[in-house]
């Protein structure tokens, strides 16, 4: 059954979902009325853009709670700058705006909160095994649910090796040579 546009007799092809005061409010519109309301309808929506827009829009809700005008101590980028441009200013931004960024990053990465995977040798940071094991368990369950047995077997092996006691850390890390950075060139 085709749904009619809330505002005219044409077929509704656009559904706008808003969360107002914690309640879901849906509107069904045809393309023309949606365009009239300023709701962009693109035939080829880029997922990357969607994700960025999503982050930026979502950040609106948390903003009232968040301290207004949080800025990065490293480069001076404000949270408002980030919302507008979708880009952070420097590596320090992540630490300076962690309370604001954390929830957005979580939503953009399907609920993930912590890094799992490669770590730079020189960072001295051991990969966080707990998060890795939790992530692997979830993936294993997903693979079993999806009846992907080959993948499940690979994940099971990986989980076993992750749960095994870690070998003694090697001390072959390269000597650190830091260059002065950020200054004017000679």
């Amino acid at each position: 059954m085709k749904r009619k546009c809330d505002r005219c007799d044409r077929e509704a092809t656009v559904t706008e979902v808003l969360i107002k005061h914690g309640k879901k409010v849906e509107r069904h519109l045809c393309e023309q009325c949606a365009a009239g309301e300023g709701i962009a309808v693109q035939s080829h929506v880029n997922v990357g853009d969607l994700l960025t827009n999503f982050i930026v829009q979502q950040s609106g809700a948390g903003e009232q709670k968040a301290a207004k005008g949080v800025t990065c101590s490293g480069c001076g980028t404000s949270f408002a700058d980030f919302k507008q441009r979708g880009l952070l200013g420097c590596p320090e931004c992540y630490a300076s705006m962690e309370p604001q960024l954390g929830p957005l990053i979580e939503r953009a990465h399907e609920g993930a909160t912590h890094h799992v995977g490669k770590t730079p040798r020189r960072s001295g940071a051991a990969p966080d095994t707990r998060h890795r094991i939790a992530a692997l368990r979830k993936q294993l369950q997903d693979a079993i649910d999806a009846e992907q047995y080959e993948r499940a077997a690979a994940l099971r092996d990986e989980l076993r090796s992750a749960e095994a006691p870690a070998p003694a850390p090697s001390d072959d890390a390269a000597p650190r040579t830091r260059r002065p950075i950020g200054g004017d060139p000679q």
């Binding site: 962690e98 799992v116 995977g117 730079p120």
Partner: peptide, 18 residues
């Protein structure tokens, strides 16, 4: 640029982590 929580740090947070 790396953080133990967020992994490799990138200009856009949609690329952060690995």
């Amino acid at each position: 640029a790396y953080s133990p929580r967020f992994g490799y740090l990138t200009a856009c947070p949609t690329n952060v982590g690995t």
